[in-house]
């Protein structure tokens, strides 16, 4: 078997921006001194006049993006998730969310897979923060194919969008002709009858690996890739929960307020179902190689499998 192709979704972000920029003059890209890391450097190279480096000032960058959007530009404001959702939260809330301006936030380096930089740069809180902003669309793509599709969909959508990308190269899992991306529509990757696993981002691959192991032991797991955290595909989540009677959420984010929170909110109101939230368990991350951290925090296939096995 050939080696699985791996690409970091931040790379996909940069590449998709170049494609968009070539087609649409109004696309502009903003950075806060991290164009090399957010991978928007390729856009800067292709369209230098439409790349705006704001320096290390994320709050101001969000405000500038708002002003640009108010004149009809489609700005993609790029920085690490920690600074996009964390430091600049109030600017995103008041200057972008409240006026519902057409700003796209490209948040890279989300979650513990940031790796060696450690807890200060590992944002496990961004989904929770962004979810509370009315009208904010939140997308957390699982691989290169989905990330590029998400960037295109974000451009087509009129309004603020938070795009969550990772630093770590992850396997390409959606490379099939039937793949279709639609904001707010989850993707049923595998049917099952005993438990539903709902995952986002790089954890979709972990969920698939866990499902395979469970299958070997006679546990039939349904796997849903829920790339859009908000608006959540409630219909799909509830239908699957009713079918299997057990739901597991898997995300590289705090178990508080992110995908797990969103799924619990939806289910408790409309179809109360036992839920196991797999994620970062209300703790800060730490330094280390990304793969080793994912293993330690039980977010790799083995870890997800073990937690589900213990729970059901």
């Amino acid at each position: 078997m050939s080696e699985v192709k791996k690409i970091a979704t931040r790379e996909s972000y940069g590449n998709a921006l170049v494609e968009l920029g070539a087609k649409h003059e109004e696309v502009v890209v903003l950075d806060a001194d991290l164009a090399g890391a957010t991978k928007t450097g390729v856009f800067k190279k292709a369209f230098p006049e439409r790349h705006i480096d704001c320096g290390i000032a994320e709050g101001n960058m969000m405000g500038i993006a708002a002003g640009l959007a108010a004149t009809g530009k489609v700005p993609f404001a790029s920085t690490f998730a920690m600074f996009a959702a964390g430091r600049a939260f109030e600017q995103v809330r008041n200057s972008i969310g409240y006026p519902h301006l057409n700003v796209k936030i490209g948040a890279t380096h989300a979650g513990i897979s940031v790796g060696e930089d450690g807890a200060s740069h590992q944002c496990n809180e961004d989904l929770a923060l962004m979810r509370t902003i009315p009208g904010m669309v939140i997308i957390c793509p699982s691989d290169d194919v989905e990330a590029r599709a998400a960037v295109r969909a974000a451009y087509e959508y009129e309004g603020p969008v938070y795009l969550r990308f990772g630093r770590l190269a992850v396997p390409v899992i959606n490379d099939n002709p039937g793949y279709k991306f639609e904001i707010g529509k989850g993707v049923l990757l595998k049917e099952g009858s005993d438990v539903t696993i709902i995952a986002a981002g790089l954890c979709v691959n972990s969920a698939l690996e866990a499902a395979k192991k469970l299958e070997e032991e006679g546990v039939s797991a349904e796997v849903i890739n829920i790339h859009t955290i908000k608006p959540l595909d409630k219909e799909l989540v509830i239908a699957s929960a009713k079918k299997t009677g057990k739901v597991v959420t898997v995300e590289e984010h705090s178990i508080i307020g992110g995908l797990g929170g969103a799924v619990c909110e939806a289910l408790s109101e409309e179809a109360p179902t036992p839920v196991l939230r797999i994620g970062v368990k209300d703790t800060f991350g730490e330094s280390g190689p990304a793969e080793a951290l994912l293993k330690k925090y039980q977010l790799d296939g083995e870890g997800v499998y073990a937690q589900i096995k213990e729970w059901i």
């Binding site: 101001n60 500038i64 708002a66 002003g67 640009l68």
Partner: peptide
Amino acid sequence: GQGISAAVGMALAAKLD
């Protein structure tokens, strides 16, 4: 503190266009 940033964005848009 936020309005001035938006104004800067608008002024920048005029320059770009």
